[in-house]
Simulated scan of single mutants.
Amino acid sequence: MKGRSAGQHISALMILMLVVLSCKKESELDKRNQTPKAVKLQVPGNFPVAYENMDNPLTAEGIELGRKLFFDVRLSGSNRISCASCHHQALAFSDGVALSNIGESGNMLDRHAPALFNLAWSRSGLFWDGGSKNLESQAFGPLTSPDEMHQDLLVLEDELKQVPEYVQLFQFVFGGGRGEIKSAMIAKALAQFQRTLISGGSKYDKYKRGESGTRLNKKEMEGMNLVKSKCQPCHAGELFTDNSYHNNGIDEVFPDTHEGVFQGRFRVTFQSADLGKFKTPSLRNVILTAPYMHDGRFNTIDQVLDHYQTGVKTSSTTDQLLYQNMGKPGVVLSQTERDAVLAFLFTLTDQEFITNKKHSNPNE
């Protein structure tokens, strides 16, 4: 009886081991068969169709990897600053200063850090002069700039390979060899996250979509109509930007110093008609994204309106859309109209966007 009992016990153990091994093999097979979950952008109902980069399709895991990287100080040479250091969610991913000097060199930058949102609709280049073609190429600018993150890309790859979680995430999202992490993958992940930074939940948006009975008051409605008549087509459509380049009359001359950063779009195209032209920022979240212009020279919205009313400087490329004062440069507004424009601009603030946990630091 004892022998039979022992035999039964051994048989039971063997069966259990076979079940465990079988489950393990099935689990490994399931894991191998898993693929990143494809994601479609959640486009607000009043927005145009978003641009999809077929070379970098969105996945839930790729977006999350990009979010982790966006907030990771390891992306800088000294492991001191991250992308988020100059792009704060509470300020619609701008930084609140005219020209930052928190980069690796400590030197003051020549241009103001732009706000980051609705980038999935930007097809005409990024940076103030359109110097990068898309988000994937844009990432290498700040990553490698001596005055910004000053990171050696090969060193960055090696650093991230020391983090088991990153090794697993990169392998799952992008495939490739085991433990392979390349700078191109880093840029793609960052781009995926940034494409999800969609701001379309302001009071204006809810009014446009007829949500929850949201209405604009009389002053806000007047301001909306004034913006449409006075500020378009530069601040066009539901995005409140044409994503193009204009000389808005803040300078008369455009020196070629500092690698031509003051020459605007001309620096990229070398077309004389582009001298002094810079990319049109969106009016969305404009109350949050002070200071203003490519060099942050205007601290307040009032200063911006002062410029457009009485401060437009003329040059051979000053945009003809600014000649609204009986053939002279300047946008004519009464004080009442100006107050209405300001009232409307406040309706473009998107509190949901700046508090959305999906865009926040995953480590907090």
Rank of each mutant, 00 (worst) to 15 (best):
65 L>C: 09
37 K>Q: 14
41 L>Q: 09
65 L>W: 00
53 N>V: 00
36 P>H: 09
37 K>H: 15
36 P>C: 07
58 L>E: 00
55 D>M: 10
47 F>I: 11
34 Q>D: 05
29 L>A: 12
37 K>A: 15
47 F>Y: 15
60 A>Q: 11
42 Q>M: 10
55 D>L: 09
46 N>A: 13
30 D>W: 08
42 Q>E: 12
44 P>Q: 13
50 A>Q: 00
48 P>W: 04
52 E>H: 11
49 V>D: 12
46 N>Y: 14
55 D>F: 05
41 L>F: 04
62 G>L: 03
43 V>H: 04
55 D>K: 14
53 N>T: 01
31 K>M: 11
56 N>T: 09
46 N>F: 14
60 A>P: 01
54 M>S: 14
60 A>V: 10
62 G>H: 00
60 A>E: 13
57 P>T: 07
31 K>W: 13
62 G>P: 01
51 Y>V: 14
65 L>I: 07
45 G>K: 06
45 G>R: 08
65 L>N: 00
55 D>G: 10
46 N>L: 07
54 M>K: 12
50 A>G: 00
38 A>Q: 12
51 Y>A: 13
61 E>K: 13
36 P>S: 03
32 R>P: 00
55 D>Q: 15
59 T>F: 04
60 A>K: 13
47 F>M: 14
48 P>R: 10
59 T>N: 03
43 V>Q: 04
41 L>D: 05
66 G>W: 00
40 K>G: 00
29 L>Y: 03
46 N>H: 15
55 D>R: 06
60 A>L: 14
59 T>I: 05
51 Y>R: 04
33 N>F: 08
34 Q>G: 05
58 L>D: 00
37 K>V: 14
51 Y>W: 13
48 P>N: 03
36 P>L: 10
50 A>H: 01
63 I>W: 05
32 R>A: 06
43 V>F: 12
49 V>M: 09
35 T>F: 08
42 Q>C: 08
35 T>I: 14
